[in-house]
Amino acid sequence: MKVTLVMAAVGLVTVLGVGAKRPSDPPFDPPEMVRVATGEIAFRPLGNFALSGKTRTPRVVQTTVPGFDIMKYQVTGAQYAACVADGACEGARVLAPDAPQTGVNWQDATAFAQWYSQQTGASWRLPSDVEWQLAAAERYGDSAPDPAAADPGAQMLASYENGATLRLKADPALYAAGTFGLNSNGLADVSGNIWEWTDGCMQTGTLTEDGRVAKTDPYCGVRIAGGVHRAAVIDFVRDASGGGCAVGLPPDHLGFRLVRGE
């Protein structure tokens, strides 16, 4: 009997690997997932760009984004509360267990992804900004001014007007998950009243004469949030409506959803 038990233990170590940790039971039912197929987007980086010393808007560039699996719904209050209860996430106000979790910053969202990865044994992460744009499909909004606009004041005014027009579709009140329906990819509540954290960073750089990016450097203390329009928000800010939005109009609410896989 002892020999059998020892052999079984050795076999378990062989399967799991020395020092390997078996994932605990998932803290909540697995989230519904959506497969977003490989596709092309018209992408322009968000940030501060200049041509010959003058502020300009980059032109869009067709960009291929590999397919990925992403949560159908945003992370809910109940899901986030499980991370808080486990001591892995900072506390945040939960409006309702089945409502999307808001009032979280990029660091909170990243901590949740790391915790959930440990809990499940799978890899979970925030989407990149290009992945988020591909997933958002027809609900992606771009408030950038015309690349041909040369006057900085006119650029700021155009960006504000574009963003304000897009925001007519958003409602500052919060609702249960699914309230804003599905987009063509099958994702719920994309570009509703919640902006979603991504791993994208604000960019600073220069442009060529035709408006393409010649050189760019990321500033990752400011992250890109996708929503009715994109916003660049300081990574520790939980309520951008009260300040902390580096570029563009501030989001009404900050939440997130995760991608599964590396």
Score class of each variant (00 low, 15 high):
1 M>W: 09
2 K>M: 15
5 L>D: 11
7 M>Y: 13
7 M>E: 11
10 V>H: 15
14 T>P: 05
14 T>Q: 13
15 V>I: 06
18 V>E: 13
20 A>Y: 13
22 R>N: 12
24 S>E: 06
25 D>E: 14
25 D>S: 08
28 F>R: 09
28 F>N: 10
33 M>F: 07
38 T>C: 08
41 I>T: 00
42 A>N: 07
42 A>I: 05
45 P>F: 06
49 F>W: 02
51 L>W: 00
52 S>Q: 04
52 S>C: 13
53 G>F: 12
56 R>K: 08
56 R>I: 01
58 P>H: 00
60 V>L: 01
62 Q>E: 10
63 T>L: 01
63 T>K: 01
67 G>N: 12
67 G>D: 09
68 F>S: 02
68 F>Y: 01
74 Q>F: 14
74 Q>K: 03
74 Q>T: 13
75 V>N: 14
76 T>R: 08
76 T>A: 11
76 T>E: 06
77 G>E: 08
80 Y>G: 11
86 D>A: 11
87 G>A: 06
87 G>W: 08
89 C>F: 01
89 C>W: 02
92 A>R: 11
92 A>G: 14
94 V>I: 14
102 T>K: 12
104 V>T: 15
106 W>H: 10
110 T>H: 09
116 Y>D: 00
120 T>H: 04
121 G>M: 14
121 G>W: 12
123 S>R: 14
123 S>Q: 14
125 R>W: 07
127 P>A: 02
128 S>F: 03
128 S>N: 11
130 V>R: 11
132 W>T: 06
135 A>W: 09
137 A>Q: 05
140 Y>R: 14
140 Y>D: 07
141 G>P: 02
143 S>M: 05
145 P>Q: 04
147 P>C: 02
151 D>F: 04
155 Q>F: 01
156 M>A: 12
157 L>R: 13
160 Y>Q: 12
163 G>Y: 13
163 G>M: 04
167 R>M: 10
169 K>M: 15
169 K>V: 15
170 A>G: 09
171 D>A: 00
174 L>W: 04
175 Y>F: 03
176 A>N: 11
177 A>H: 00
178 G>T: 05
182 L>F: 07
183 N>R: 08
186 G>Q: 11
186 G>R: 13
189 D>L: 05
189 D>V: 02
190 V>S: 02
191 S>T: 13
191 S>I: 12
192 G>W: 07
193 N>M: 06
193 N>L: 04
194 I>F: 12
194 I>A: 08
195 W>F: 03
196 E>V: 05
198 T>A: 02
199 D>L: 15
200 G>C: 08
202 M>K: 13
203 Q>G: 05
203 Q>R: 02
204 T>P: 04
205 G>Y: 00
206 T>R: 00
208 T>A: 09
213 V>C: 00
215 K>A: 03
216 T>V: 05
217 D>I: 15
218 P>H: 04
219 Y>G: 13
222 V>A: 06
222 V>H: 00
224 I>H: 05
224 I>P: 03
225 A>L: 11
229 H>M: 04
231 A>R: 00
232 A>W: 06
233 V>S: 15
239 D>S: 06
239 D>F: 07
243 G>R: 00
243 G>C: 09
245 C>I: 05
245 C>G: 10
245 C>N: 12
249 L>D: 01
251 P>Y: 10
251 P>E: 10
254 L>Y: 07
259 V>P: 03
260 R>M: 14
261 G>T: 08
261 G>Q: 06
262 E>S: 09
